[in-house]
């Protein structure tokens, strides 16, 4: 299976190890990986800040970077960026710089084959147990964009359930934003501070020593706040967890394991 990685600027600028672990995990599960070299950013920093005119070239670049890549799927380690990429066809409806609809057409192709890392493993590869072992107590931070824009509430919890030795603790206030919000965190630091401080308190109350998430931006925010407060935590992207002490003989398909525990309920009651 040919997979192109949508790296995101998060991974390129700050979290190279997440990318390495992700490549290891996916190759172990039989994927051939490529990293299209002209990709940069999903466009959220400028688009969400209201610089919409300046954002069209960013979206176009991202689409161009993947347009000619021979791959079955595009996989990203960032829930938020994946969500936005899936929304490209909606955003581009307002794009005046794409009169013949070329980018719209490409965006639809792109969006249809793009998945976030955890949902790709569970829903596309059909793998439930990646064979990882991590001894410790952890809690999971559910990112807003992965939940509400991408609509993925379950797969990280299900994959974590199969990590040997890992005790998962429920996080109170799971539904509340950690205060990252991309440029929000630098534009409105005083509000962001109140939000991330409450998130830190809730994580502390779980007694977890490890905080897992599928969004590096949230990890950077929460981890940075923990460090500023001088409080202990280990932050880990799910890819890092799934690439810890792996015993390949333990890898199991979804069809080979019992039905997963329902992920914590949130708002979608359809």
């Amino acid at each position: 299976m040919k997979v192109a990685l949508f790296t995101s600027c998060m991974l390129d600028l700050m979290f190279p190890k997440v990318g390495q672990d992700m490549v290891d995990v996916l190759e172990r599960l039989g994927c051939t990986i490529q990293v299209p070299s002209d990709q940069i950013c999903c466009g959220q920093p400028t688009y969400n800040s209201g610089y919409v005119e300046a954002s069209w070239p960013v979206l176009h670049n991202q689409i161009d970077a993947f347009a000619d890549v021979d791959c079955d799927y595009i996989v990203s380690p960032v829930g938020s960026c994946t969500g936005i990429l899936k929304e490209y066809p909606t955003l581009l409806e307002d794009d005046p710089t794409d009169p013949d609809g070329y980018y719209m057409k490409q965006a639809k192709i792109l969006a249809a084959k793009t998945y976030e890392f955890s949902q790709f493993i569970w829903r596309v590869l059909g793998i439930a147990d990646c064979g990882a072992q991590l001894d410790g107590v952890a809690t999971y931070h559910r990112s807003c964009h992965m939940t509400r824009i991408l609509g993925e509430r379950e797969t990280p919890f299900w994959l974590l359930e199969h990590v040997n030795g890992l005790e998962m603790r429920p996080l109170n206030g799971l539904q509340y934003c950690c205060g990252f919000g991309g440029t929000f965190s630098v534009k409105e630091p005083s509000i962001s501070q109140l939000m991330v401080t409450e998130k830190v308190e809730n994580i502390e109350k779980t007694g977890a020593e490890i905080l897992v998430s599928c969004d590096p931006g949230c990890l950077m925010n929460i981890g940075g706040r923990f460090n500023r407060l001088g409080k202990p935590i280990k932050i880990m992207h799910l890819a890092e967890v799934l690439n810890t002490n792996v015993d390949p003989s333990r890898i199991r398909k979804v069809s080979e394991v019992p039905a997963p525990t329902p992920a914590p309920a949130e708002v979608d009651l359809s």
């Binding site: 600027c9 390129d12 940069i40 400028t46 610089y51 954002s55 070239p57 670049n61």
Partner: peptide
């Protein structure tokens, strides 16, 4: 600053 962010994230070379 934001315009620079826009330019940098739109151009593979600058990035």
């Amino acid at each position: 600053q934001m315009k620079i962010v826009g330019k940098a994230t739109a151009s593979p070379f600058l990035f």
